[in-house]
């Protein structure tokens, strides 16, 4: 009977997995269907852009600067050994624009904005605000979820671009001003090897995909959180953890597709 028990557990888990996938996909469809209704309510979107985008700006720019400076310092130490320190700009720009910018911004965004979204929506549910809206014939998905989702999707590529740009400036500060890499070589090597479509645009697409993933997971977990204090806290944790896994997994796939050759 032990064997049957473990089979039952496996069945239970896969059933739950399928149910989650189905429910979240249906939820995404509901959100997408609700986007046109946003047109008349730009103020709602603006409000969410403020809490999702503007308030994440500080941590993104500080982290970007730190990552860029550390990257510049460490890469310089390695490159100077093979007297290739002129390629510093090239190395830093490619790794930031292609990988570190979108991925780190996505992780920070999930921690700073995604968790806040889940907690907010979860608490709205726990305090019956969502149910109250339904009573007043206001669709909570259109009123609460859609603006938050769209704000997340718009903010993420902007934040990732800021992260990469600040990071490159940080490595410029350390590499050129502090360690004495030639300024002309730093920028010209970078420009010669970073491709607008192949690298910059693919980085933007990556961050857009991560933005959709994080915003989707955050609003889904919030909307489907158990309506208790513990349920909300668990949902918040799940948002951060699932977002991190989704970003890292998706990054692997996207990198394979974009920079595979």
């Amino acid at each position: 009977m032990k064997i049957l028990d473990s089979f039952q557990r496996l069945g239970q888990n896969s059933e739950r997995l399928f149910a989650h996938t189905g429910a979240s996909s249906l939820f995404l469809l509901r959100i997408l269907a609700g986007i046109p209704s946003l047109c008349g309510h730009m103020r709602l979107l603006l409000q969410q852009m403020y809490s999702v985008g503007v308030q994440t700006l500080t941590i993104i720019s500080v982290s970007g600067l730190a990552v860029g400076m550390v990257l510049g310092l460490q890469m310089y130490n390695i490159l100077v050994d093979i007297s290739a320190e002129n390629t510093l700009g090239h190395v830093v720009a490619l790794s930031l624009v292609r990988e570190l910018g979108p991925v780190l911004t996505g992780l920070l965004f999930a921690g700073r904005a995604g968790s806040a979204l889940t907690a907010e929506i979860g608490l709205m549910k726990a305090t019956d605000q969502l149910a109250g809206m339904e009573m007043m014939a206001v669709d909570p998905v259109k009123r609460v979820i859609v603006p938050r989702f769209v704000a997340g999707v718009i903010s993420m590529p902007l934040l990732a671009a800021i992260f990469s740009a600040v990071g490159i400036l940080g490595s410029y500060l350390v590499g050129v001003d502090l360690l004495g890499v030639d300024e002309g070589a730093f920028w010209s090597r970078m420009q010669a090897h970073v491709d607008l479509y192949g690298d910059v645009l693919n980085g933007v697409i990556k961050s857009l995909v991560f933005g959709i993933l994080v915003a989707w997971i955050a609003v889904y977990e919030g909307y489907h959180a158990e309506a208790t204090t513990e349920g909300v806290s668990q949902a918040t944790t799940r948002t951060v953890v699932h977002s991190a896994f989704a970003i890292l997994g998706m990054d692997f796939i996207l990198t394979g597709l974009m920079f595979g050759d």
Binding site: G53, L158, A165, I168, D199
Partner: peptide
């Protein structure tokens, strides 16, 4: 954000 994108495409890329 748009300025950062512009910088990435004008100053960093080719």
């Amino acid at each position: 954000g748009l300025a950062a994108l512009l910088m990435l495409s004008l100053q960093v890329s080719n």
